[in-house]
Amino acid sequence: MKLGFIGCGNMAGAMIGGILKNGILPAEEMIGSNSKESSLKRTAQEYGIQTTLDNRAVAGSSDILVLSVKPQYYAEVIEEIRQDVREDQLIVTIAPGKTIEWLTERFAKPVKIIRCMPNTPALVGEGITGVCAGSLVSREELDYVCHILSGCGRTEVVSEKLLDVVVSVSGSAPAYVFMFIEAMADGAVADGMPRAQAYKFAAQAVLGSAKMILETGKHPGELKDMVCSPGGTTIEAVRVLEEKGLRSAVIEAMKACVEKGRNM
């Protein structure tokens, strides 16, 4: 089954890399297009897939077509390719704010649409992708797309109304986590640790903490309490984080992310 990507930027690259790394599809069953020849050359060299500057060629040759351009280009790209889209084809989108209703109106004909929101940890097989499907998509077709996306990590089927929340809690979230790791490393460097070593300690602490939540099933608050000895160093650090408004800052950032996504 041919998998096509219109747009070969960072997110598409993360998806392609994850799919290849986990053996979900071979490179010869994938094709990608992009408006910049330099991006196509890089994609072809890194992943070994077929590339072209012709979006219509990708649309016409793909069984599953991923629209991985920036949201502001969706209307333009759909107008370009809609005559090449077939009734039996699956259209997968990754754009926040572009609803199934909006997409169907732009195609101006019945189309099998699956919206998903991946994140960049897909590149190392540790992503999580929220997925929802239009009414014309069968359960078997949705399951198959989820299988392909599983090459990038976990998948979760959600209602469309929650997809903008998925953007804030996972799609954009790696940026928050990278900032947190960088800040932790800066703190360690300020106290004398070499930067490369500080990044390792901070990143592994975040990775291990995330695995504890996923594998133990314990509430994050319970796990936090397990680290906080009475009168100890951790509870003192937690006190300062609360004083500086860490929780509120994260919540407000996520709410701003959702609002921005809904209006794109």
Rank of each mutant, 00 (worst) to 15 (best):
M1D: 13
K2C: 06
L3R: 01
M11I: 11
A12T: 06
A14Q: 02
I16A: 01
G18P: 06
G23T: 11
I24F: 07
E28F: 13
E29C: 12
I31E: 01
S33D: 02
S35K: 15
S35Q: 12
K36L: 10
E37M: 10
S38L: 06
S39V: 10
K41W: 00
R42M: 08
A44R: 13
E46K: 15
Q50Y: 11
L53V: 13
A57H: 14
A57M: 13
V58W: 00
A59F: 00
A59P: 04
S61R: 13
S62K: 06
I64S: 02
V66L: 04
K70F: 06
Y73L: 10
Y74N: 08
Y74A: 11
E76R: 11
E76H: 12
V77F: 01
V77I: 14
E79L: 11
Q83P: 02
Q83T: 13
D84E: 15
V85N: 03
E87I: 08
Q89V: 09
I91W: 02
A95R: 02
P96G: 14
G97I: 06
G97N: 05
T99D: 01
W102R: 11
L103N: 04
E105H: 14
K109L: 03
K112W: 01
I114E: 02
C116I: 11
C116V: 12
N119G: 02
N119W: 08
A122G: 05
L123M: 14
G125S: 09
E126N: 13
I128K: 02
T129K: 04
T129Y: 07
G134C: 03
G134W: 00
S135K: 10
S135M: 07
V137M: 05
L142E: 12
D143S: 15
H147N: 12
S150E: 10
G151R: 05
G151T: 05
C152R: 05
T155E: 03
T155V: 11
E156D: 07
K161M: 09
D164L: 04
V165L: 08
V166D: 01
V167W: 00
S170A: 12
S172R: 07
M179V: 13
I181R: 08
E182N: 12
A183P: 06
A183K: 09
A185R: 07
D186E: 11
G187H: 04
R195A: 06
A196G: 11
A198C: 01
A198G: 01
F201D: 00
A202N: 00
A203S: 10
A203L: 00
A203C: 06
G208K: 05
K211N: 04
M212W: 07
E215W: 09
H219C: 07
H219I: 05
G221W: 04
L223F: 09
G232P: 03
T234L: 09
T234R: 03
I235M: 06
R239I: 10
R239V: 10
K244F: 08
G245M: 09
L246S: 12
V250I: 15
E252A: 15
R262K: 15
N263A: 12
